[in-house]
Design a protein around this nucleic acid. Structure first.
Length: 113
DNA sequence: AAGCTGACAGCAG
DNA sequence: CCTGCTGCCAGCT
C-alpha cells in the first residue's frame, strides 16, 4: 500500500494511539473527535491501512458503536482481535464486548482539544 | 477519469 | 422493531 501519510489518516492514528490499555473506542467517536463527523467508514479504512506502519497502531481497540468486533476479519488471524482484547481484560461473547459501557473510551470526553 | 467500495452511523419509513 | 437510504472521503479498478 502506498501513501498512508494523509492528514486524515494521521489524525485518526494520533487518537487511536491514545486509547488506553483495556479500553476501546468506536469508529464514529473517533471520526467525530477529529472533526469529520460521519466519516466513520474512513476510520475503518485508516485501520485497514495501519497494519504496516510503525509504531503499531492498536487497531484492535476500535470497534463499532454496538461493541461488535466488526474488523476482526482484517487481522492476520480471525481470532487475533478478540484475543488481544481478552488479554487486556475485556470480556467478549459472540463478537460483542459484554461490558462495553464500562470500557468505552470517548476521545471527545477524555481528550480536551 | 469516473465510479465503486468499504473494519460505520444516523435517521426515515 | 427492522430494513434501507444517505453522508462521508481516500484508494482502487
Amino acid at each position: 500500500m502506498g501513501k498512508v501519510n494523509t492528514s486524515f489518516f494521521r489524525k485518526v492514528y494520533i487518537v487511536v494511539y491514545q486509547i488506553p490499555y483495556g479500553r476501546v473506542s468506536t469508529y464514529g467517536a473517533i471520526a467525530h473527535f477529529i472533526g469529520t463527523r460521519g466519516a466513520a467508514r474512513m476510520v475503518g479504512w485508516a485501520m485497514n491501512a495501519s497494519h504496516n506502519i510503525v509504531p503499531q497502531v492498536p487497531a484492535h481497540r476500535v470497534v463499532n458503536r454496538l461493541g461488535l468486533l466488526s474488523g476482526r476479519a482484517h487481522f492476520s488471524s480471525p481470532n487475533l482481535m478478540q484475543q488481544l482484547l481478552e488479554n487486556e481484560g475485556i470480556q467478549i461473547k459472540d463478537d460483542k464486548i459484554l461490558n462495553f459501557e464500562q470500557v468505552f473510551w470517548d476521545p471527545s470526553k477524555e481528550l480536551k482539544p
